[in-house]
Design a protein around this nucleic acid. Structure first.
Lengths: 202, 202
DNA sequence: ACCTGAACACCGTTCAAGT
DNA sequence: ACCTGAACACCGTTCAAGT
């Protein structure tokens, strides 16, 4: 409707949306600021009014991704509010898997440290909060005698590595070659996490 | 010694070596063919006599990385030749971790599917062979009654995801924030794998 | 306040021509 | 056989100028 070439309305929003779709279709490496400008119908210089660099734009996208991750983890934790600490640890993993498999491009962006500035407090701090939550639940599970013998720190990191690795394998399309049902990857991923939980439980 | 500007001697080799060092220092995203040409003292067009594209060069680097991975896995398997199938499964993981932590840039290249052509038979086939070996050992362990109750396929993928995830976490420098000793990441990574093996064992 | 236009120093890649 | 030189169509980013 507003056909102005000047005053786009919300160029920042339009650029972020265009970036997400472009990455989804063509990958992170191919993304160009000039292409985003073209898609938004503005000059090549216009995006730099809103993002000081390509890295800044991708970091902003990563921040929005982090919003979604935090919300997904919080939602899963609310569902497990009545459960014990080991099930709350599981809930963090479930929240992560749900989010990663539902928003693969956001997951790709947030885990591509070569392209974003992960040291931004809005990323680092929220990432640390999730890590601290996982650690808290795992230590509580250990103190409650819910874990089999072993080093708690290693059980914790093993779980975190497993969840991250599953997400990567699912999104890289590796499930079929490992003989897993790729039709419902989230159910499969959750089942693998559940089997880990069962294996570490007392 | 040979100061010829023409006939470099082994430009192909020089480009691959320069690429590895450049990526180690500056990351994959920043690598440029022109920069590699400059480092080798040749014209911008010269590299394209040896690699038809940037992707082809990085794929060749990934093939050399795969050589190292296969050798590392084979060496670990030889060490475990007398052991049972569950320990042979472990050996594949140990071979992977040793290689990934000792050659982080090669690991980065081989796992960056946006930049390489993973469908090349030399990559895909050797990757599949490692996967098939892991599956064989895991199924043999199950048949020998070495595993606790559970779905074997999920135990297998869980182990593979855990090993891959540990490597990523170690190389991303995440060990300290998880309270792990980062001084000897390989020992720590192996201990986490061993705890997984212990947890899934009967 | 927000965008354009032109510029600068880069890219990957091609191709005719040189040795 | 192997490399150069020049060219083409791109980049990210800056900055003075326009509205």
């Amino acid at each position: 409707m507003t056909k102005d070439r000047y005053h786009h309305g919300d160029l920042r929003r339009a650029l972020l949306d265009a970036a997400l779709h472009y990455i989804e279709a063509n990958g992170l490496a191919a993304l160009s600021m000039r292409e985003l400008a073209r898609q938004a119908g503005v000059s090549p210089a216009a995006p730099f009014r809103h993002f000081e660099s390509r890295t800044a734009l991708l970091t902003a996208l990563a921040e929005e991704a982090m919003d979604g991750l935090v919300q997904s983890v919080d939602a899963a934790l609310r569902e497990a509010a009545q459960a014990g600490p080991l099930m709350q640890f599981r809930a963090v993993g479930v929240g992560f898997l749900r989010w990663a498999l539902a928003h693969p491009t956001h997951f790709l962006v947030i885990s591509s440290r070569a392209y974003i500035d992960f040291e931004k407090p809005t990323l680092r701090e929220r990432n640390d909060r999730i890590r601290a939550a996982m650690e808290g639940y795992m230590r509580a599970a250990a103190e409650a005698g819910l874990l089999r013998a072993g080093d708690v720190g290693r059980t914790l990191v093993g779980g975190r590595a497993l969840v991250y690795g599953i997400a990567r394998m699912a999104l890289d399309g590796q499930f079929p070659s490992w003989g897993l049902d790729a039709h419902n990857p989230l159910d499969e991923a959750t089942a693998i996490l559940d089997q880990y939980i069962a294996a570490i439980a007392a």
